[in-house]
Amino acid sequence: MMTKIWYKRFAVFGFLAPNLFGFLLFVSLPVLASIAISFFQWDGLTWPPRFVGLDNYVELFHDEKFRRVWFNTLILMTGIPLNITVSLALALLLNRKLRGIVIYRTIFFLPTITAGVAIYLLWQWLYNPNYGPVNAFLEWCNIPAPAWLQSTFWAKPALIMMNLWIAAGGFNTVLFLAGLQNINPELYEAAAIDGAGCAARFWNITLPQLRPTLFFIVTMGVINGFQSGFEQAYVMTRGGPDGSTTTVDFYIYDLAYREYRMGYASAAAWILFAVVLVVTLIHWRHGKKEVE
C-alpha cells in the first residue's frame, strides 16, 4: 500500500516536473519579481538596485508621455468594433452553405496566418506615398492622397486599416461561424412561419443567439488591444511620426530595453496589467453567466 502511494507521488512529480520547473522559472516567479522590481530604480545590471517605494508609480501618473501612449492605444483600439462588424458580416456570408466555402475561408485566413514583420514591411511599401499602389489608386480616383505613415494624423488610420485587413477574416470569423452553426434551425423556421423578414431574423434571433460568442470576441479583443501595437510600430514607424503610433506596449519596451529603466518600465507594465485585469474579470464573470 505504502509503495503504491509513493509510486503515485513519484509519478505526479515526474509528469509535472519538467513543465513546472520552467513555469516557475520563466513565468510565475517573474510575475512576482516584476512587482518587486517596480519598487526600485534599477538598470537591471548594477547591484544593488535603489529602493524608491511607490515613486515609479507616482512619476508615471505625472508622465505626459505615458498619458499620450494610452491615448494612442485607445485610438488604435477603435478598430476593434470595425473588425468585429466585418468578421460577423463575413461569417454570415460564409454560413450560407455555398460552394467553395473552404477556399474563401482559407483566403480570408491568409493575412492572419502570415501576420508579422514581413506583412508589416509589405504594408509599409503599400502605403509608400510616392511609389505605393494605395496612393496611386487614390490619385486615379482623384482623391487627395495623404502621406499615411509619415503623417501624425494619418498614421493611426493607416494602422487601423491594415489591422482590419489582417484580422477581419481570421479567428473572429471562424468563431462567429461556429456560433452561427450552433443556432437551432427551428428558431428560424418558427420565425419564417411568423413572416419575419431578413432584418428581423437577424436582430431577433441571430444576434441574441450569438451573444456568448460576441461577448467572448469583444472582451478578448479589448484585452489583446491594450497589449498590442509594438511590432507594427517598431517595423513601420518606429513609434512615430512624433510618437503618434507609440502604444503602451511599445513605451514599456522603450523604457526597459532602450533606456534600461527596469523599475519604471515594470511599474508601467503593472498599470497595464491592472487595466487588463479589470477587463479579464468582467470577461470571466459575465462569460460564466452567458454560458449558463
Binding site: 516584476s34 522590481i37 506596449d249 507594465a269 497595464l272
Partner: peptide, 9 residues
C-alpha cells in the same frame, strides 16, 4: 498577465 510584465524579469 501581459507578456510585457514577465518579460523584464
Amino acid at each position: 498577465v501581459p507578456g510585457s510584465v514577465t518579460m523584464i524579469p
